[in-house]
Write a protein that binds this DNA or RNA. Structure first.
Length: 506
RNA sequence: GGCCCGUUCGUCUAGGGGUUAGGACAGGAGAUUUUCAUUCUUCAAACAGGGGUUCGAUUCCCCUACGGGCUACCA
């Protein structure tokens, strides 16, 4: 590390949907970068051609956009260190691998996959390392002549790092503190594959160096291979420019244990991906938070507090607040089980705090998908304001507001018919007439009129209030009934009383 | 198996050598409400175990247990 401008990167491989944990890694990178006035780079790690999935890169980009976590440099927007797809940088990695071979820190290995498999079968806990590399076919065990012959014949080969003996390699993780490894126990990882592509190990080091990355945040699953990366930084002569590392804790299954996977989502009924992901090959649709009805602000908020807090009791944070308050040192070391109930709570909080104006476009889409055409934006805003407190997920807006746009499709007759009386019919007929003539159409006035009339007719308020609600709404739910009537308007309210009366007395 | 990382209420977590171990979600009870939700009040709920160190450990150290990750020419 040095005092140059902060540069971080998120480096996903385009192999499928974007997992919760991935978004959280993006988020932490992003927050750190923005807080330090730094640069957030998106780099695509597509060195495994066999796992490449069409559309996955665009999907990742869409997720980032939805979350509002925009990359300063990426394959799409470009940047001074382009290209940002490792497959397009293929040519450059070999040089570094060869340099390591020349220095004696790496070597050619000619073993075929079948030979390796055989060896693993023969020897329990086989590790391609100092214990066994002499038994394999590589430029350490073979004579120089044999190696040259193989190379001249273009024999398929990989380049492996040569792990040193009896060394201790350690580093200071920003989250975990000192972590150390014994090099005798780490194997000779492949650096360059037979197809000429680098493995993650080589690519991450070369690209982090070339792209001047100052801080590298990644999931805890990478911790065991950290010594390989550290050694590469050292052997390539870049030790003093190595980024500071932070290994983020994993997000675990809510029940049992283990890393959260998309299977858990399907099993337990909640999304794991940021947005819907459709796998063209398996025709399988994996649901996403966005489509389920999460606000990106809520999604970001819940992810941020999964493993991090600012030391106060604050739980709701805007992106700007997160940028201001985030600190990598306050990230927890232990993995966190994902709690969907709490996730929904965050969303409900965010909906409550959002303005009708900001919610309107989303609600409009939801309603239109259900066949409701919204013609009056002002009316929509008022509707949103009266119901948003009872919405948890965006689609709830439909269930909570459809009656504002159309006469109830059906009534909860069980709630009214058994207790219906002629006196109630008289009451509502009179109410209708009174409402028709009402000079003021506001909640307080309507309520006063309603109560006075009920009293006059000798009816208990409660006995007519619920039927009135069902006349307007269709069911036993919704905000205060006179707020509904006010919004609905004089004509529509009177109309609904008449319509419902027919159904109730049939 | 080996290596690495971890362990405070059911869950997310705050705290930190002497505290009534705090908050949030979920759960219970109650208030408000004509429904439902919101809101408010309230209850229950935790320092994995064993050794040290110490006047005193949940907090520091060690061990054990448990959990997780990695152990591919995948990332």
């Amino acid at each position: 590390m040095n005092d140059q401008k902060v540069r971080v990167r998120f480096a996903p491989s385009p192999t499928g949907g974007l997992h919760l944990g991935g978004v959280r890694t993006v988020l932490f990178n992003y927050l750190f970068a923005k807080q330090h006035n730094g640069t957030f780079v998106l780099r695509i790690e597509d060195t495994d051609q066999t796992r490449y999935v069409e559309g996955a890169e665009q999907y990742i980009l869409d997720c980032l956009n939805w979350c509002g976590l925009h990359a300063d440099e990426s394959p799409e927007v470009g940047g001074p260190f382009a290209p940002y797809r490792q497959s397009e940088r293929k040519a450059l990695y070999r040089e570094y691998a060869e340099r390591l071979v020349a220095q004696g820190h790496a070597y050619y290995a000619f073993d075929t996959p079948a030979e390796l498999e055989q060896k693993r079968k023969e020897i329990p806990n086989f590790q391609y390392g100092q214990a066994h590399r002499n038994e394999m076919r590589n430029s350490i065990s073979l004579s120089e002549h044999e190696v040259d012959t193989l190379l001249d014949a273009h024999a398929p080969h990989v380049i492996r790092i040569k792990m040193p003996e009896d060394e201790h390699i350690s580093f200071n993780d920003m989250i975990r503190g000192d972590v150390s490894f014994d090099t005798n126990l780490v194997d000779d990882k492949v650096l360059l594959k037979a197809d000429g592509m680098p493995t993650y190990h080589l690519a991450v080091v070369v690209d982090d160096f070339l792209m001047k990355i100052t801080h590298a945040f990644r999931g805890e699953e990478w911790l065991p291979s950290a010594p390989v990366h550290l050694l590469l930084w050292k052997y390539l002569g870049w030790w003093d420019q190595m980024p500071k590392w932070a290994h983020l804790p994993l997000i675990l299954k809510p029940d049992g244990h283990g890393k959260l996977s998309k299977r858990d989502g399907a099993r337990l009924g909640f999304p794991v991906y940021a947005m819907n992901w459709f796998d063209a090959k398996t025709q399988e649709l994996t649901p996403g938070f966005r489509e389920l009805g999460f606000l990106p602000e809520a999604f970001i908020n819940l992810l941020a507090t999964l493993g991090w807090n600012d030391g106060t009791e604050q739980e709701i944070f805007t992106l700007d607040e997160l940028i201001e308050k985030f600190s990598i040192e306050r990230v927890n070391k232990a993995g966190a089980k994902f709690d969907f109930e709490k996730a929904k709570w965050f969303n409900a909080e965010w909906i409550k705090r959002s303005s009708a104006e900001s919610l309107a476009p989303k609600v409009k889409t939801i309603l239109e998908d259900k066949g409701i055409t919204v013609t009056d934006d002002n009316y929509l805003s008022k509707v949103i304001d009266t119901i948003k407190d009872r919405v948890v997920l965006l689609p709830d807006f439909y269930q909570q507001s459809s009656y504002f746009f159309a006469v109830p499709a059906e009534y909860d007759l069980n709630a009214v018919k058994p207790k219906w009386t002629d006196a109630k019919t008289v009451f509502f007929n009179t109410l209708s007439d009174t409402f028709k003539a009402a000079p003021v159409w506001q909640p307080a006035e309507l309520e006063a009129t309603f109560k006075a009339l009920a009293e006059e007719k000798g009816l208990k308020i409660g006995d007519v209030m619920l039927p009135f609600r069902i006349m307007l709404v269709g069911g036993k739910f919704g905000p205060h009934v006179f707020d509904i009537a006010t919004l609905l308007g004089q004509e529509e309210t009177v109309n609904r009383i008449a319509l419902a009366l027919v159904a109730f007395t049939a």
